[in-house]
Structures are given as C-alpha cells and as structure tokens.
Design a protein around this nucleic acid. Structure first.
Length: 421
RNA sequence: GGAGAGGUGGCCGAGUGGUUGAAGGCGCUAGUCUCGAAAACUAGUAUACGCGUAAGUGUAUCGAGGGUUCGACUCCCUCCCUCUCCGCCA
C-alpha cells in the first residue's frame, strides 16, 4: 500500500510509477475519495465535539438537580446527524481503502522501464555450462531411470504437480534443506518454522489478497490459505508491532513447502520439476531501516547467489524491468540457473525490496533511536533457494553419460553419498 | 467438542453510566544528588486521523464489531482470542 499522504502530495510521481508498471491508474479516484473523506471527518468531528461538550454540561446540570431537557433534545438531533455522517464516512473509507489496496507499488528509479520479460536486464553471469561430449538428458528422463522422483504416482495420490520424492531423491531434498539453512545461519539469519496456513489478514498484508486469491489453495471452512511462500507467514510475524531501531535489521530464514494453484500454466513450462503445485523453498526475509534497504537488497542477493556458486551451477542475474516486476515490489532481481538438459534458464530465486509497501499494509514500524515518532520499516525477501528447479538443474548439470548423477561436493556431508545411480 | 473464568497503556493492575487517555505500581527517558554508580527525589513517558508554517488543538481508541443512552471502560447482542477442568488425539 502506498502512503496516502505521498499520493496526495505527489500524484504525478505516483501516476508515472504506476504507468511504468503497466497497470491501470486510479490515482484521481483516490484523491477524490480522500477529499470527500476529509470533508466528512471535519463535519463529523465538529458535531462530536459539540456532543461531548453538551453531554458534560448535562452531567453537571443533573448532578446539580437542574433540568437538562433542552440540551438533551438538542443532542437527540445531533446524534442523528453524527450517525448519518459516520455511515457516509464509513462507505467512503471502505472505497478508499479498497482502492489503495489495489494500487501497485511504484518502481525504484534504478529500475529499467519495460513491459515484458524481454526488457529485463541481464546484469551478471556466473560459471559456465559443463563441457560434455554426449547429449544431456532432461531431468524428467534422469529421475525416472534413477527412480528418485515419481510423477505418475504423485498424480494418483494428489494430482499433477505433486511429485513424490523417493530414496536418494528424497534425501537430496533433505540435504538441500540443511545446506541452505546452514548457509543462512552462518550469515546471521534466525531460523523460523512458521504456520503453513495463514489467515486473511496475513495474506492481505503481504499482498496476495485481495487480487491474487486464485494463486492460493484455500481452506474455506476455516478461512485459511495454504502458504504460497514462507514470505507470507514470516513477514507477518511482526504485523502490528513497533520494533526498536536497535533490533534492526531482523533477518529470518525459513524452510517450508509452498502451495500454488498456478492456474492457466501449460506446456513445456510445467514439464517435470519446472512448475509444481507443491514445492519446497528456503526463504530469506529482512526487516530493515528505510535508509539501508537498497544495501540490504544487494547483500540479500549475494546471500542467494553464494548458494548457487557453492553448488557450482551456472546462473545469471536479471534486473527486472518495471512491467515484469509484480504488484508489490519496488525493485527485484531474479536468479536463473542454466538447465543443461532443457537448454534454457530456470528461475530459482526472486529477490525483492518492497520498501514500505508491505510494512504499511501490515503496520510494522520501528521507534527511532532516542525516541520520536514510529516509522514504517522496509521489508525484503529472497528465495534462498526454491528447490525443484535447483534439483532439475543440478541433476542435469552433473549427469554422466551412463545416466548417473555426481553430487556436488558442498552437499556430500548432507547426503552421505556422492553419486546417485 | 462440553463446562467455567477472563481479555484495560511496554508490563502488572484499579476502575460497574458523567473531565478515565484512563488511579497505583513496575519499566523506560531526562534532571537533582554523587568522584562515579546505586538508592532517593522531581519531571516526562501511547497510537491514528483531521485542522494549523508552528506552538497547539479537535476526534477516535480499555479484544473486534454492532446496539441502548444526552453521555459507555462501565449495560445489551454477535464474533475473536486466552486460561482452567473434562473429552478426543499425533
């Protein structure tokens, strides 16, 4: 959510930012409702002031045994007016709030303007594709021969997009959980095991609601949502809190399964591990002082990149353009790992600065050193990392001509084996 | 799921219709005292929104929402949550 005062004072900047994101701009409606709201507030409060004053007088008169009926009669009329102004105000505020929740965050000046993924900028590349003298297999062939991931039976048990990891496949997943979390620990992140279902307020706080309800699995009977990412429960930990500046930055890491309906996906994008309804992810979340959030974004990116480096996987860093960035972000990087078997890049991490956009929705503030008014914190998060595509890339990258897979050294102490197959 | 109790400021805790934003205590901040610290004493110590350049001022907030009333922390209704006992259960 954007700051209403900022919109009021800089409507053109906001309109420009929304235009860059390629979204419809309802800034003028916001301003109109804001004016209506302030007018109603002023009229209502003047009457309430009157009511409070007279009620106090009535109290005094009654205690003095005097007649207060003229005042009471006046207040009867005032009461009706207040009620009607309050009702009107409530409607205006509901409309205003609904509108504010649908305004996207505006991009940081360093974000390139663009409309599609083609406009994203590749700003770094690490490693090389492996040199091999055979035709590499895609991971879905490898895992079937090795019998380590069973897609067919996953369909039977749950449906498409719910694979079953088996034997070394399951252990590889478990190894990655520990590897990623240990790396995060070493960088000062505190491990969180959050709820895997969240309520409406939490889903609204991080921006999944009201617009993106279709992405989530719902539990209607209990008004809960299965987490589409640990970002949701972890960022909401500090909802409606005033932190102290000394606590900042707060850094959390969390391993969770993630559940996404991903309606409308099809084709090569969903083959094998490329896109699933349930997948594992370690998420990194930061709450930081607004003055340093862009430094924190860079270090967050480094924290995620190092994981791919330690796994020895070839990857690139994209700076997302304004139009491809998403509703809540001010600036976002994607890490894409090279898929040898598919000869394409796969997104394994998305690293974002939301500035105050989420924190304002969630009312997460901090008290500045030495006192003073609470300020909104900035929130950031990044995948560190999402498992399925890392697993896909890893299996494909380290495959042998015989269809076995060499486990990268960084994982040996977690897997206990060095070769799959 | 059944029965009972309760939700008040950073924390504890008073308050059952009329200056209660809210006693008292703790904590915290500043000052006095001290070589310094502790203790003691003094003062200050919520948030949001509106108006105002500002000082300031108005309104709201005692779990949430609604109702009764001239006036609600106090009465009524609905919901949420916590605790205790019982049941069920990994």
């Amino acid at each position: 959510m954007l700051d209403l005062k900022f919109i009021r004072e800089h409507p053109d900047l906001v309109k420009e930012g929304i235009r860059k994101k390629g979204e419809a701009d309802s800034v003028d409606d916001v301003l109109r409702l804001d004016m209506q709201r302030r007018d109603l507030v002023q009229r209502g409060e003047a009457l309430k002031n009157r009511r409070n004053t007279v009620s106090e007088e009535i109290g005094k008169l009654k205690r003095g045994g005097q007649d207060a009926s003229p005042s009471i009669a006046e207040m009867d009329a005032v009461k009706t007016q207040i009620k009607s102004l309050d009702d009107e105000l409530k409607q205006v505020e509901e409309s205003l709030n609904r509108l504010l929740l649908t305004l996207p965050n505006i991009p940081h000046p360093s974000v390139p303007e663009g409309k599609t993924p083609a406009d994203n900028q590749e700003i770094a590349k690490w490693g090389e594709p492996p040199v091999i003298d055979f035709t590499p297999k895609p991971h879905w062939d490898l895992v079937q021969k090795l019998d380590i991931i069973d897609f067919e039976r996953g369909v039977k048990v749950a449906g498409a997009g719910f694979p079953i990891y088996k034997g070394p496949g399951a252990k590889l997943q478990r190894a990655l959980i520990n590897f990623f979390l240990d790396e995060a620990y070493a960088k000062g992140y505190t491990e969180i095991q959050p709820p895997l279902m969240v309520n409406t307020a939490s889903a609204t706080g991080t921006g999944q609601l009201p617009d993106k309800e279709d992405l989530m699995y719902t539990v209607p009977k209990d008004e809960l949502y299965l987490v589409p990412t640990a970002e949701v429960p972890v960022t909401n930990i500090h909802r409606d809190e005033i932190l102290s500046e000394e606590q900042l930055p707060i850094k959390y890491c969390a391993y969770t399964p993630c559940f996404r309906r991903e309606a409308g996906s099809y084709g090569k994008d969903v083959r094998g591990l490329n896109r699933l309804h349930q997948f594992d992810k370690v998420e990194l979340v930061k709450f930081v002082h607004p003055g340093v959030s862009y430094n924190e974004l860079e270090s967050l990116r480094t924290d995620a990149e190092v994981l791919l480096q330690k796994l020895g996987l070839h990857y690139r860093v994209l700076l997302m353009c304004s139009g491809d960035m998403g509703f809540t972000q001010s600036k976002k990087y994607d890490l894409e790992v090279w898929s040898v078997g598919q000869q394409r890049w796969l997104e394994v991490s998305s690293i974002s600065n939301f500035e105050a956009f989420q924190a304002r929705r969630m009312n997460i503030r901090f008290r500045p050193r030495g006192g003073g008014k609470p300020e909104i914190v900035h929130t950031l998060n990044g995948s560190g990392l999402a498992f399925p595509r890392v697993v896909a890339a890893l299996l494909e990258y380290y495959q042998t001509p015989e269809g076995k897979v060499i486990v990268p050294k960084a994982l040996h102490k977690y897997t206990g084996f060095e070769v799959i197959g």
